[in-house]
């Protein structure tokens, strides 16, 4: 049941991702890069409002797919759902890392971030690669949505907003184009948030967490594992 939900969700979000790419990103491929960020933002608002309009304002609850079991190991309290989420997330990230680093498709993706204009000259089918990248990214985001809702089973139209921003922060903190970096970035952000709340005054959590982000990026201007921009980056 759980696996079926996960796979179907991933397929559906992949389809949405491809549609969004077609509608909102492809026409803007030669525009300033930030214009695409704005259409992306607008697509987000549209999807959220459509959700609100179609499903109504009520919060939805996420059905229990796996019965909760609580484990106690010494002072540490774990639930089977959380253990599984961490495991599955690591597995997916490892698979993604392999895909980006070892396959031809991954090589094309990486090449695209270096120089997008020259790629067609090398015989790379740019459109196919971009569509696949979007499908992959959206499918993984869909998987994250399922896992997140299993752990925190209250659904609302705007639930993705803050998580989305945090994901962006974590990815960039790790360095663009580095999957281990993104994992580490996410871990650092989460670690700071939890530990500030646990050890200091919890009201200062955001202040401290984002100050640390700012400091890290001031002293490591290209994130933890990122490389400086190539000189001819299209901005």
């Amino acid at each position: 049941m759980f696996l079926l939900t996960l796979v179907v969700t991933m397929l559906l979000t992949a389809v949405i991702g491809v549609l969004v790419e077609r509608v909102a990103y492809r026409p803007l491929r030669d525009a300033p890069r930030a214009s695409a960020a704005i259409t992306g933002l607008m697509v987000g608002i549209f999807l959220e409002t459509a959700n609100l309009a179609l499903l109504g304002a009520s919060r939805k609850t996420f059905p229990t797919l796996l019965e909760d079991t609580v484990y106690r190991l010494g002072g540490v309290i774990l639930t089977n759902v959380k253990v599984m989420i961490v495991g599955l997330a690591l597995l997916l990230m490892w698979a993604l890392h392999l895909l980006v680093q070892k396959t031809k498709l991954g090589m094309a993706m990486r090449a695209m971030s270096v120089d997008y204009a020259i790629l067609p000259l090398m015989g790379v089918p740019v459109n196919t690669v971009i569509v696949l990248t979007f499908a992959l990214g959206s499918a993984l985001a869909g998987a994250a949505g399922v896992l997140f809702s299993m752990a925190y089973p209250v659904l609302e139209p705007y639930m993705g907003l803050l998580i989305g921003w945090k994901a962006f922060v974590a990815a960039i903190l790790g360095g663009r184009g580095s999957i281990p970096g993104a994992v580490l970035g996410g871990f650092i952000l989460g670690f700071i948030e939890i530990f500030v709340a646990a050890l200091f005054v919890s009201t200062l959590r955001d202040l401290i967490a984002y100050s640390v982000v700012l400091l890290i990026l001031t002293y490591r201007p290209y994130g933890l594992f990122g490389e400086p921009y190539s000189a001819r980056l299209r901005l």
């Binding site: 948030e193 939890i194 919890s202 955001d206």
Partner: peptide, 17 residues
């Protein structure tokens, strides 16, 4: 007297405290 921020979904640190 523990706090979190709007749209947070995990309260385990605060609850443990």
């Amino acid at each position: 007297f523990e706090s979190f921020t709007t749209k947070d979904r995990d309260f385990s640190a605060q609850l443990t405290k």
